[in-house]
C-alpha cells in the first residue's frame, strides 16, 4: 500500500516512516510542509495519506487545508489527519464531501500501534476513523431531534465504535458480544437511518456521517 506522509518534526516523521514500513506500507514520499504536500498528493495519488494538521509555512491548519484541497482535485483520496488536539469543526470539514476515506486522530493514538495501523487500513479502504474524543463530544450533545435520536443506546454505542473505524469483530470484542449480534445491530441501524441496500462499506460510511451530522 502506497503512503504519502506529511510531518514537520523530523523525530516524529522518522518514527512514523519506521512504523508504517514495519507494517508493509510503502512510504513513497515524506514531506514537511503544506505546499509540497499538495504537490506530492497530486503527483503520487497514494492509496492513503497520513497528514499532520500543523505544518510550515504558517504553522496553523496548513495540513488540513492541503488535504481538503487534494480531495477536491482527487475526489475520495483517502486521508488520515493527525493532530496534537482534535477539533469538531475540523472533523466536519473533512467529512463535508460525504465520500468517506477520512480519518482524524490524536497523535498519541499512534502509541497503540496495532489500532493505529488498523485505522490507516480502514481509511485506505474508504472507511472512517474518527478519534474517540470527537465521537465522545458528539455523543454528549446529541438531542433527540438528530437523525440518530431514534436509535437504542446499544445501537448508538455500536455506531460510535463504527465512527472510530472499528471492524465488526473489533466492536464485538470491545462490547463483549458476538460478531453476529454486531451485524444484527448494524442492520437495524441502517434500517432506522433509512439507508438502502448497497455495498456494506458504503452504508457504514453513510451511517457514520449521519451520526456525525455533517
Amino acid at each position: 500500500m502506497r503512503v504519502v506522509l506529511a510531518e514537520d518534526l523530523a523525530l516524529l516523521r522518522d518514527g512514523l516512516i519506521r512504523l508504517l514500513e514495519a507494517h508493509e506500507f510503502d512510504v513513497v514520499e515524506a514531506v514537511d510542509n503544506g505546499p509540497s504536500l499538495l504537490r506530492a498528493l497530486v503527483n503520487h495519488r497514494p492509496d492513503v495519506a497520513v497528514v499532520d494538521v500543523r505544518l510550515p509555512p504558517t504553522f496553523t491548519d496548513e495540513g488540513l487545508r492541503a488535504a481538503i484541497e487534494a480531495r477536491v482535485q482527487l475526489p475520495g483520496l483517502p486521508v488520515l489527519v493527525l493532530s496534537q488536539y482534535v477539533e469538531q469543526l475540523y472533523a466536519r470539514e473533512l467529512l463535508a464531501d460525504w465520500r468517506g476515506g477520512v480519518g482524524y486522530l490524536l497523535k498519541d493514538r499512534v502509541s497503540n500501534v496495532s489500532q493505529f495501523v488498523e485505522a490507516v487500513r480502514q481509511v485506505a479502504g474508504g472507511g472512517t476513523a474518527m478519534d474517540p474524543e470527537v465521537v465522545a463530544t458528539l455523543l454528549s450533545r446529541r438531542g433527540n431531534d438528530s437523525p440518530v435520536g431514534g436509535l437504542t443506546p446499544r445501537e448508538r454505542e455500536v455506531l460510535g465504535l463504527m465512527a472510530e473505524g472499528r471492524s465488526n469483530s473489533a466492536i464485538a470484542a470491545k462490547l463483549f458480544i458476538t460478531e453476529k449480534a454486531v451485524s444484527k445491530h448494524t442492520n437495524s441501524i441502517f434500517a432506522r437511518l433509512g439507508l438502502p441496500q448497497s455495498e456494506d462499506d458504503n452504508r457504514r460510511v453513510l451511517a457514520v456521517l449521519a451520526y456525525l451530522q455533517v
Partner: peptide, 21 residues
C-alpha cells in the same frame, strides 16, 4: 486554543459552540 491561532475569532467561536449541549 490552537483553533484560535488557526482560524481566528470567527472559527474559534464556531468551534466553541459546536460542543454546546
Amino acid at each position: 486554543p490552537p483553533v484560535l491561532a488557526d482560524r481566528g475569532l470567527d472559527g474559534a467561536v464556531q468551534a466553541l459552540v459546536l460542543s454546546s449541549p
